[in-house]
Nucleic acid binder design. Sequence first.
RNA 1: GUGCCCGUAGCUCAAUCGGAUAGAGCACCAGCCUUCUAAGCUGGGGGUUACAGGUUCGAUUCCUGUCGGGCACGCCA
Length: 585
Amino acid sequence: MTSLAFPNFKTHFSALFEQAALAIAPPGVSVRIELTRTKQADHGDYSCNLAMQLAKPLHKNPREVANLLIAALPASPYLEKTEVAGPGFINLFLKNSAKQQYLHYVSQSGEAYGCSGLGQGKKIQLEFVSANPTGPLHVGHGRGAAFGASLADVLAAAGFDVSREYYVNDAGRQMDILTLSTWLRYLEICGVHIPFPQNAYQGEYVKAMAQLIHQAHDRRYLHQPESLLDGLPDDARAMPVASDELLDKLIANAKATLGEDYAYIHNFVLTEQLGDCRNDLMEFGVEFDVWFSEQSLHDNGLIARAVEMLDKKHYLYQQDGAMWFRSTDFGDEKDRVVRRENGQYTYFASDIAYHLNKFERGFDYLIDIFGADHHGYIARVKGAIDALDYDSDNLDVALVQFAVLYRDGKKAPMSTRSGEFVTLRELREEVGKDAARFFYVMRKSDQHLDFDLDLAKSQSNENPVYYIQYAHARVCSVLAQWDGEVEALLSADTSWLSNPAELALLQKLIDYPDTIEAAAKEYAPHLIAFYLRELAGEFHSYYNSTRFLVPEIPIQSARLALIASVKQVLSNGLKLLGVNAPDKM
RNA sequence: GUGCCCGUAGCUCAAUCGGAUAGAGCACCAGCCUUCUAAGCUGGGGGUUACAGGUUCGAUUCCUGUCGGGCACGCCA
């Protein structure tokens, strides 16, 4: 094995087929070497469809081409035999000795096994979650968090230099509504009762923040209701306010009434919510390298600068008192406003400045993880990037569908404003971090997720995460009873591993780096989840068919070396998903 | 109405940029614990890949249409 810098059989055979193709293909014909793992054992270990690709340009039937390719294929020390099968597949059978020797590579690599240099150290900025800091994270955010964190780790394992970033929407109207909501609750505590608007934040956490302010500052922010209700229609004084205009009027009045104190409350609720969010995510195993403030874009003049840059390139125009970006020039359905009639920049303007800033920080690639309801937003962002002379192909947007929660067979409500929702924290407390993280990434991110709370809560054997963790714990248990030094297994004679379960397990271990590469290329951590399920399955099967702690020491060592590597790969994979690998269960 | 996504076993989902006999789990049925953890294993039934056409050696995958579901169509974020 030492003859290969990185002993990846797929890469190795691809290179051989490349040479074979060069030998027989007509000049000018380019082909893609595709090597796939076979589904059936009698098709060998790897399969190549190159002959079928070359059949047409060569004007020969595929099976004939396959034989030519095999004849032109350079010798490989790992290859037992080749076969032409079906319409013209070339099936490759690995030598058992190649699989057996490969195990040494796995055990020597340890925690690093599965990592590759695919990304060549390119810098990727991954933005995810980025929820408004206006209340607790709910289960929808949880999916974005789990997906983003796993994807970041997968990309890092694949050799990218990943920066995880949370964009804090601390500049918008929603923050004002939260500030108002908190102050109104504070006034209630002080004995001033003003009808609480229906479209303000209803959650208990708002009352809790009001309580904190009251404890720290007593009645310092107390004002009588007259100035707050100034300019509101009479019925709004008695009835809960429901319209956006009335809410905005209330916010304006609150700012006028509180003066500089408004900023204090605004800052207090922001700090409080952000701290809660950060803590929540940390307990979920999700951490960020950068928390980027939207407000800082305003404060540093970066939005004005970005808009000015667009203007200089003549991509902006005035209409109806507002300033518009010609996003239709870049394939968007309609042009978009960047500065409103009232002179304020839109959220889109902030986002243009933000993405410009990302590129200026020197990232090679950007990835945004959005909720699927934002898909209409992609065209305008990419348009703005292109307008600013960066390449929008270097931005990928991964859409994550919302998780729909089911409780007692019914959909659970998920409106933040109504205060009726299941928080991420509640979910973690109910089903545990491991199950939650695993469930979230078990399926493709762009598919709807039906999250059955009762099922997830049941903590029964129905939960697939236990199946994988159990395999890990079983290996630990065997190794503990063996009571030897795992280091000693590095020199085990692995040629004893020759029964079908052992060879299947070895092949499964060989597949792991390819799985990570695929997961990285396709932004698909769910592939890891499926892989781990299969690896655990192969192990449980082996466990039931074969005894490890046998008296014959060479055989025992070989089997223990195998299961120790299984344990290592289970642990490595679970780590990428943010799931714990317990020694005991 | 227009655009995007989706439709696969009873349920929840896979299927490696078009590959071989479409696979798992759950549920159901029948077996396996004096031996390393039964949260496990072994075997079994279960499909016109929504429907109808098209493209080619080959289609769950690509194209067109129909039906059904979701989302988006703000000077909100």
